[in-house]
Design a protein around this nucleic acid. Structure first.
Lengths: 119, 119
DNA sequence: AACTATACATAATG
DNA sequence: CATTATGTATAGTT
């Protein structure tokens, strides 16, 4: 990619991470669309950001239809799985958010503020 | 890409199309995994080839879990179970922390500010 | 967000 | 399947 190599690990700087998320998300969806058109495939992409916002793409029909097709392919109606211990997840999330706040507060003010970003 | 440009239309030559499908499918899944790791996102990709074969990727948990999450997000919580007391507190705290992060991120209304000091 | 320098993906070959 | 020439994606910068 751009300048210098990229470590395949979570980007710690929140601003940097957010910018990368926007750019790469756009790139990924574009690639998915291309693959679908070039090779006549039906593709669905679902992305939940770290903060739980949903981004999606379904290249033919709707995501619902694709999910149905997926369900049929993998074998029948999905059995309800017991949720992972929600409380544990919550605590984990709280920790991460606190950490992020700390980074934001410490962090230098170098970046740009995209006030009306689509991301 | 490689040599020469690529028309964004279905590749007619079946052999060529199949090769491209394999390569780009691998590339797409790799990109998805990278985005997930770098930006801490939960991503699901479902690909049905032109001949109906399924390829999939879920970066956290299973595809089923992701589909469930998708359903909840888009359809709203159908029938919420009563939350346990500490769970409610946790949710509340998460909300507050997220709000704080948002304020911190959007905070200073700027233009360009490359200095580490306030502008 | 626009720009630029590079790393990467990949179409065409071998 | 390995190589390689080129077009893209995108990290860092401003």
């Amino acid at each position: 990619m751009g300048r210098g190599r990229v470590q395949m690990k979570r980007i710690e700087n929140p601003v940097h991470r957010q910018v990368t998320f926007c750019k790469r998300r756009a790139g990924l969806l574009k690639k998915a669309k291309e693959l679908s058109v070039l090779c006549d495939a039906e593709i669905g992409v679902v992305i939940f950001s770290a903060h739980g916002k949903l981004y999606e793409l379904a290249t033919k029909g709707t995501m619902q239809e694709l999910i149905e097709r997926y369900g049929k392919y993998t074998g029948g109606p999905p059995a309800d799985e017991p949720m992972v211990e929600p409380m544990q997840d919550a605590k984990k999330e709280i920790e991460m958010l606190k950490q992020e706040i700390e980074i934001l507060q410490k962090g230098p003010r170098w970046t740009l503020c995209f006030k009306k970003s689509k991301c």
